[in-house]
Measured scan of single mutants.
Amino acid sequence: LKHLCRKALRSFLTTYQVLALPIPKKMKEFLTY
């Protein structure tokens, strides 16, 4: 489930946009992995 969620997010968010999100650092590391 997490993998699918990440894949969906990565499909419409660039790494830069993910880093700009107001989310915890650990979550950013997970999303930009």
Results as ranks from 00 to 15, higher is better:
27 M>W: 15
8 A>D: 01
22 P>E: 14
7 K>Q: 08
21 L>C: 09
10 R>G: 04
26 K>R: 13
19 L>D: 11
33 Y>E: 13
6 R>C: 04
2 K>N: 01
10 R>P: 04
27 M>G: 01
32 T>C: 12
25 K>V: 05
8 A>P: 03
15 T>K: 08
7 K>R: 10
18 V>W: 15
15 T>D: 07
4 L>H: 11
15 T>Q: 01
8 A>R: 05
7 K>M: 06
27 M>F: 12
19 L>P: 07
12 F>I: 09
13 L>C: 05
16 Y>I: 15
3 H>T: 12
5 C>D: 01
16 Y>S: 14
17 Q>I: 12
26 K>P: 07
32 T>S: 09
23 I>Y: 01
8 A>F: 06
19 L>Q: 09
10 R>E: 11
4 L>T: 05
18 V>I: 08
1 L>F: 11
19 L>K: 10
20 A>H: 12
31 L>S: 00
25 K>Q: 04
3 H>E: 12
9 L>D: 00
17 Q>T: 10
24 P>I: 15
13 L>P: 00
1 L>A: 03
7 K>W: 08
5 C>I: 14
29 E>W: 01
13 L>F: 10
20 A>I: 15
26 K>L: 06
20 A>S: 09
25 K>F: 03
24 P>S: 01
4 L>W: 13
19 L>S: 08
6 R>G: 05
22 P>H: 14
28 K>F: 12
21 L>G: 06
13 L>G: 02
19 L>H: 08
8 A>C: 04
2 K>L: 09
13 L>A: 06
1 L>I: 08
14 T>S: 07
31 L>M: 04
5 C>P: 06
28 K>C: 09
25 K>L: 05
25 K>P: 05
18 V>H: 14
24 P>L: 15
21 L>W: 10
5 C>Q: 05
33 Y>P: 01
15 T>P: 01
9 L>V: 11
19 L>A: 08
10 R>W: 08
21 L>K: 11
12 F>C: 08
29 E>G: 03
7 K>A: 06
21 L>F: 07
13 L>S: 02
8 A>V: 10
31 L>D: 00
28 K>N: 02
28 K>P: 01
9 L>F: 06
24 P>R: 13
13 L>R: 08
17 Q>H: 04
5 C>R: 10
12 F>G: 02
2 K>Q: 03
7 K>F: 02
18 V>Q: 14
25 K>Y: 02
15 T>V: 14
11 S>R: 13
28 K>T: 06
28 K>L: 14
17 Q>E: 13
13 L>T: 05
30 F>V: 02
33 Y>F: 12
13 L>W: 08
19 L>E: 11
3 H>Q: 11
6 R>V: 12
9 L>E: 05
20 A>G: 15
19 L>F: 08
11 S>K: 14
21 L>T: 03
17 Q>F: 12
15 T>F: 14
2 K>S: 05
4 L>C: 05
23 I>E: 02
26 K>F: 13
28 K>W: 14
24 P>K: 14
32 T>P: 03
21 L>E: 09
22 P>F: 09
12 F>V: 10
20 A>C: 11
32 T>E: 08
16 Y>V: 15
18 V>G: 13
1 L>Y: 05
15 T>E: 07
16 Y>L: 15
25 K>H: 03
14 T>V: 10
16 Y>E: 15
7 K>H: 01
11 S>E: 03
31 L>H: 00
27 M>V: 11
16 Y>K: 13
31 L>R: 00
15 T>M: 13
2 K>G: 03
1 L>G: 05
23 I>L: 08
9 L>P: 02
25 K>S: 04
9 L>K: 12
23 I>M: 12
11 S>Q: 03
29 E>C: 02
31 L>Y: 00
18 V>P: 02
26 K>Q: 06
18 V>Y: 13
8 A>L: 12
23 I>T: 11
6 R>Q: 08
15 T>R: 07
6 R>A: 10
27 M>C: 04
23 I>V: 02
1 L>V: 07
23 I>D: 03
12 F>L: 12
18 V>R: 15
20 A>Q: 11
10 R>K: 11
11 S>A: 14
21 L>R: 13
31 L>T: 01
17 Q>P: 02
18 V>M: 13
10 R>S: 05
33 Y>V: 10
30 F>C: 01
4 L>Y: 12
33 Y>S: 14
28 K>I: 15
6 R>P: 05
10 R>D: 10
23 I>K: 03
22 P>K: 15
21 L>N: 08
28 K>V: 12
20 A>F: 04
25 K>W: 03
22 P>I: 15
